[in-house]
Design a protein around this nucleic acid. Sequence first.
DNA 1: ATGAAAGCGCTAACAG
DNA 2: CTGTTAGCGCTTTCAT
Lengths: 346, 346
Amino acid sequence: MDKPVPRRVTIVDVARHAQVSTTAVSKVLRNAYGASPAMRSKVQQAIAELGYRPSAAARGLRGQTYTIGVMLPELRNLFFADILDGITAQLGDSDYQVLLAPGCNGEKAEARVIDAMMDRSMDGLVLIAPVSAKSRLNEVARSVPTVVVGRHGASPAYDTVTDDDIAGAALVVEHLAGLGHRRIAHIEHHETDRVRLAEMPNAQRARGYRDAMILHGLEAEIDIASTSYTQTGGYLGAQQLLARPVRPTAIFAGADVVALGALEAIAEAGLSVPGDISVAGYDNSALAAFGPISLTSVDQDGRQMGIDAARLLVERITDRERRTAQVKLSPTLVVRRTTAAADAED
Amino acid sequence: MDKPVPRRVTIVDVARHAQVSTTAVSKVLRNAYGASPAMRSKVQQAIAELGYRPSAAARGLRGQTYTIGVMLPELRNLFFADILDGITAQLGDSDYQVLLAPGCNGEKAEARVIDAMMDRSMDGLVLIAPVSAKSRLNEVARSVPTVVVGRHGASPAYDTVTDDDIAGAALVVEHLAGLGHRRIAHIEHHETDRVRLAEMPNAQRARGYRDAMILHGLEAEIDIASTSYTQTGGYLGAQQLLARPVRPTAIFAGADVVALGALEAIAEAGLSVPGDISVAGYDNSALAAFGPISLTSVDQDGRQMGIDAARLLVERITDRERRTAQVKLSPTLVVRRTTAAADAED
DNA sequence: ATGAAAGCGCTAACAG
DNA sequence: CTGTTAGCGCTTTCAT
């Protein structure tokens, strides 16, 4: 009556039940070389009969843990959720289990999470938009197979998967310029760190914006509000821009959430979108697609990024000596109802 | 030049460096009884100097893994993110690391994830809105400390944290009836399973709706569209309701996403909110609070639910014999711009 | 192709 | 209070 904890079934039990050695069972578990079909089926039957499940802790002590860790800065960001979908889709039928840490913002939280994952002997890591120092990332990648998503800059130690943010920003400027806009402003995420200045998507988007403005002969119209990639950042940034002596006729927000904040500020100012001012975002998150918002946005195909990241990671786990790869995906522009032709008078 | 993998620092290295036994080190690591302050500091210094980090795999083989697993059906649901915030806030300074599985919908995916977490010897599990059979949940909880969030029904094996969904639904009906509405319809999540019919929040909300309608003498006006708790479900449900010979003047959607879908259908039908029809949701997610949407919604305080869940879980890890508890939190109604007084003529 | 045996890094009895 | 020692469940040489 009182044996509610009937001791875990171990590899020894399976071996005994199947009348083979534990080595044999281990081989079957790992699909390793050196087990005859006959033995294989005998063992598999025993496993099924006993309901055996290997202990990841014990496996991890010697071999793999069959666990992939994913770190991302923010769970609420729908774009990150898309990346995750891609990762899990790609890893769905493999033996790997994906586990993620709850949103961790900032270098300190990142360090904690990465340590935690390494402590748990994870077989591979996917780091989404990490802000840690590059030296730290390299160090991590040297000790565990790692793929970095959403941060530019090649590394000898880890693979990268990014969106071509410069091209994405150019798409927006091109679109708006094509609609007759000249005073196209940008809300960027303020960045101080040198390396991040070059590697983070936000910096690349701002650069793409500048380049494209120059390319369209709008160099004199370049106008950037420097806040942060948050809804509040968008709100404040738009307020700044709307207070200009001559108001911009279009705002390119560096992210969809930023655009949402901008939309709020614009509405509060009594202006209409796209009548008085056009707004475009970046990420094409579900929020952008949502009917009442219907935001023109750059689509990064986060799902594909996740698929590529998972693929690269498994490849690297298999062959740790392979040279690192940099996958850069081309974004597309999804035009919706927040952008329209500029008034002729403007 | 070529020793990029300098072998992990182990407890043995620390012991040697501090000139004590491994037991001593282990005790310090676990804050266990039986280590003098002098030894404690000696060991801590050695740990710092060597940059030692305990291997979770090795610990898990004997003792705890200091890992809490969280399972949730859907990452994109902002309410779940709130719960998670609460969990991490509560566990923030503890030694426990929270890891979660990417959204797993359906009984099969749930089983996989729960198994994966048990295989990894996690110290405790938080299951958010699980759909698995109750017998399965009990079985899981018997082998690992578990807290179930967002599913009613007490268990002898696990603690529960829920919202008082019946009261929440009543708040909405009361609010709408107070505004003069009589034809208040409801969009529910269709449920077939017997047990879930009683234990899932959606069923409780539908029941709360019925009860409250009767209480307000509106029994004859009860009108339920049975779809699902998704945006599409809301869209289709609203379409059904709008096609009635006599249209409802208010719709109580069982969740915010459902309300969003309903808003889309209403807009498509050329009706205005709240002019022609009032809409209320449930969850008070960030989406509901978002300006342009501004949805009247029931607030569950997901963060508090997470805090309670984490607290209960740690308590149960400490004392597995303690009797199970059921925490039920009272919801509040947040009135925004999607609900207004009914037309006098209606 | 198969199995015996030696650990992986840690914790938990138990002795001192 | 401190140290010795025996495993935890698995993988991995290395014989056979």
